[in-house]
Design a binder for these strands. Sequence first.
DNA 1: TTGAAAGCGATACCAG
DNA 2: CTGGTATCGCTTTCAA
Lengths: 329, 329
Amino acid sequence: MLPTIRDVAKEAGVSIATVSRVMRESEGVRDATRLRVLAAAAELEYTPSHLGRQLAERRHAANGIVFPDLSGPYYAEVVLGYEGVAAELRRSVLILSTHGRSDAEDAVREMAGRCDGLVILGRTVSDAAVQSLAARGTKLVLVARPPIGTVDSVNAENHASARSLTEHLLSEGVRSLRFVGDPVSSPDVAERWAGVRDAFLRSESDRAPELVTVDELDEESGAAVADAALAADDLPDAFVCGNDELALGLLGRLAAAGVDVPGTVMVTGWDDVMAARYAGLTTVRQPMRELGATAARLLEELIVDERTEPRHELLPTELVIRSSSSTSH
Amino acid sequence: MLPTIRDVAKEAGVSIATVSRVMRESEGVRDATRLRVLAAAAELEYTPSHLGRQLAERRHAANGIVFPDLSGPYYAEVVLGYEGVAAELRRSVLILSTHGRSDAEDAVREMAGRCDGLVILGRTVSDAAVQSLAARGTKLVLVARPPIGTVDSVNAENHASARSLTEHLLSEGVRSLRFVGDPVSSPDVAERWAGVRDAFLRSESDRAPELVTVDELDEESGAAVADAALAADDLPDAFVCGNDELALGLLGRLAAAGVDVPGTVMVTGWDDVMAARYAGLTTVRQPMRELGATAARLLEELIVDERTEPRHELLPTELVIRSSSSTSH
DNA sequence: TTGAAAGCGATACCAG
DNA sequence: CTGGTATCGCTTTCAA
């Protein structure tokens, strides 16, 4: 058995209260006593139990982060940004992936019971679940998801960059555009799609962009979209994809079919993952780590300062034009 | 304040012991009583406190995983594989990134105090620290790191695939080979380097492979290695890189300099990350998720079954030949 | 089948 | 400056 505060107290010949004071480095302990306690603690290799401490202090010194998946680079980077700041703040980090989990909301609720606060990425849990957590007093920060009630949120700019991206394509001569993604399952994607439509409305174009909905935003889905278009001999001037993985899958299949990109059809993605560079993919870069880091800071404010008025951060993004949408790059 | 077991007991008109029995779904509670308790719990929206429960049960129902960084795809995938299994086993997951943290070992020790067991990836902490954790009774599983004492381990096969890779290159006519990586900081890389040398020894080649040590296994370092070689006008027949990111950085710089790959120089990586496909990079695929998943299962055995004899798993890898090392692909 | 009470390992108040 | 003790929220004997 690991030694407890009582063992140390006995060893040092003091009360547990004194040991507690020494371990917490609180004032008001005579140096001689302190040294005796420290010696005893070292002797027994004593480390205070987190459980006991947390129960007494009624805090966990741990936060949780909920995300759909870690397989793409996007969420991994956000989590990493979050973890970095959380560590600085001396908080442990609990993670929970909801992907393919039927009891996601239970798991989140369970996690809430182990943390002082939670960061929720994307549409991992329902609005109702978020509301109910908030109602129970759980400190929350949403990332990549529009604000709900008075819950804090951190988002990357989507609408304006989607418009810039679309305007770039229009200026490259694109007339027919097909957007690939699922606006329903991802709030980010919904905003991007809205931005694309907006750009069309503001242009002189008499055509409207099309929407192709896919289940997953991965390479496989992208490849499937390309296959379908090739089979139907129905290629638009440009595919605008909800993220880079879709675009990469699509690009790969087009290349295999010998389709000229960007000559025959242009392709764009979103996120600027590493592979995008190697594929020459036009995309929109978002500050993934910053999203996580900002969320960690907001959460800390909620927990420590008891801040009550909600904050909503919007981080800037950047259009990155490469050869998949431009002959001059 | 959240309701406690006492609130529910009062509301239902029973003792806290009975509430505890109902909440843990243990036998020996009359149906009528159970229903009254459940009603009271629902009424108050009661959820048992993990802290209280864990303190009483002396267990955390949580495990930790320690990794250097999550920025490359490799560790992210391992963590994800781990998380998936841990979730099935109804265990929470704590994460800790040691990269750029001076107090890494303290942080790991701290984390050990919050978990029933720990998975340690790569060379994140010293052998001494691992030994001392093990000595204190912390359940441990090492991943991507050679066994230490009687601590469990999970590794991907490195030596044999490094030999196959090297033999492939030799058969492609490579005579001078330069290995890029840091065998000291990564056990995996050390084994790969050893495999390369072995293949040379067993061949008729009269030349020995060279070693270029880099600080980080990232694209930037790879680019720097390419720059140095170009500046010195000293290109080997092949660069064998310790991971894909190094190789991608190298490839990019070679392409920019107009060097013919694989004609003038061949390049290989390791891991088979997504970008490797798009770059046509020859590499060795390892089962990243499986590494994490296997570690989770071993750890569970240690915790639940109190297994004492150590286990060491070796997962298979696969050589993936692409255009960066072969004209026929 | 149920309840009373003793832990689990800390913190923190109140005396002395 | 130090010690005694109630308390945090739960589990788990031991009796009733």
